[in-house]
Simulated assay, not measured.
Amino acid sequence: MDKPAFTPRVFSGIKPSGGLTLGNYLGAIKRFVDMQGGEFETIYCVVDMHAVTVWQDPKDLHHATREVAAGYLASGIDPDKSILFNQSRVSAHAELGWLFNCVARVGWMNRMTQFKDKAGENSEGVSLGLYAYPALMAADILAYHATHVPVGEDQKQHVELTRDIANKFNHDYKVDFFPETIPVIEGPAMRVMNLRDGTKKMSKSGESDMERINMTDDADKIAKKFKKAKTDPDGIPETLEGLDGRPEARNLVNIYAALNDMTNEAVVAEYAGAGWGKFKPALADLAVEKLAPISIEMQRFMDDPAEIDRIMAKGAAKAKAIADPILDKTFDIMGFVR
């Protein structure tokens, strides 16, 4: 029997905990914008239910949810081209998440490296949600029969788990109901690193504000942070291999390439032999050109929270129109009396 043809559909989301950084923009949001209006139906979510796997101050969560939505909109996510909403407005995520808890195996969860990283030595004291959240992530994706998920390298394992859950469900119930989702990992700066330590990922929770570019930073802050970013004594090499073992240098080249839609090789070719006194101001100017308008537009949206809420409510209605029938069919397949 021929397998069903699934609508080419993209799903991805960002967790509202802390503020958005350049890493969120280059690793996720910029790619979301680029995928709009093409061959895919695009669905983008503020995954607020994932945020509460660790305790969140309610006021902070409220603000951060709107801020992520503002970041999406200010960066170019168009509510007429994409579906944009916050996860908790669509109950299919939580309901399908429970069903997938009963499909996923404990051994699969034990292999999730992100849980080990986040729980550390306190694995007995963290929430059950933090342990089981990959099943909810699978539900986020499969509630829309999403065929592609743009993710960073650190989330690839969770998309692979989503495929395992889909395959086991299809096998156990002898159906071809859920698609095998493909992780989309591409581009020069999918993992943006710390501006003060190139061996660490740029983080919302880092000790110093100088180690990250916040999407709310104004032009002066953006320029200052890049000009003061850590480098090394050597300048831009003649070839890409010359960046090996130089994490801070590689990070700045990666960022320039991603902001300017270039390859890393093209950046090295353009600036070969240049010192940091030339390259960092050029990077600062480019970053201000690309990011400062987003910061201004984010603030405009944050000054009108009712507009953000209206857009997310409208998006949630569109999301429910896709997810609810898929959830209902899942219940039917599993034998629930509805």
Rank of each mutant, 00 (worst) to 15 (best):
V126Y: 10
V126D: 10
V126I: 10
S127Q: 04
S127V: 00
S127H: 07
S127F: 01
S127A: 00
S127W: 05
L128G: 05
L128H: 07
L128N: 07
L128P: 11
G129P: 14
G129H: 10
G129R: 11
L130T: 04
L130W: 12
L130V: 01
L130Q: 09
L130P: 05
Y131A: 01
Y131V: 09
Y131R: 11
A132S: 14
A132Q: 11
Y133N: 12
Y133L: 03
P134E: 09
P134Y: 08
P134D: 08
P134G: 06
P134C: 09
P134I: 01
A135G: 08
A135F: 05
L136N: 09
L136R: 14
L136I: 00
L136A: 04
L136M: 15
M137C: 04
M137L: 05
M137V: 02
M137H: 11
M137R: 12
M137T: 07
A138I: 00
A138D: 08
A138F: 02
A139F: 10
A139K: 11
A139R: 14
A139P: 13
A139M: 05
A139Y: 08
A139H: 07
D140R: 15
D140A: 01
D140T: 03
I141N: 11
I141M: 00
I141V: 15
I141T: 06
I141S: 08
L142D: 02
L142N: 03
L142A: 00
L142R: 09
L142Q: 06
L142V: 01
A143H: 14
A143I: 02
A143M: 14
A143P: 15
Y144E: 02
Y144N: 12
Y144G: 06
Y144R: 13
H145P: 10
H145N: 09
H145E: 11
H145V: 03
H145D: 07
H145Y: 05
A146Q: 09
A146V: 03
A146G: 10
T147A: 06
T147D: 11
H148P: 15
H148G: 02
H148C: 04
H148T: 15
H148Y: 13
H148I: 13
V149R: 04
P150K: 08
P150T: 02
P150S: 02
P150H: 03
V151I: 05
V151S: 09
V151K: 05
G152V: 00
G152K: 07
G152D: 06
G152R: 06
G152M: 01
E153F: 02
E153Q: 14
E153G: 00
E153R: 07
E153C: 01
D154C: 04
D154E: 13
D154M: 06
D154R: 05
D154N: 08
D154K: 09
Q155V: 00
Q155F: 00
Q155E: 05
Q155I: 01
Q155T: 03
K156V: 14
K156S: 11
K156P: 15
K156Q: 13
K156C: 08
K156L: 12
Q157W: 13
Q157S: 10
Q157C: 02
Q157L: 02
Q157P: 09
Q157V: 00
H158A: 00
H158T: 08
V159K: 10
V159G: 06
V159Y: 11
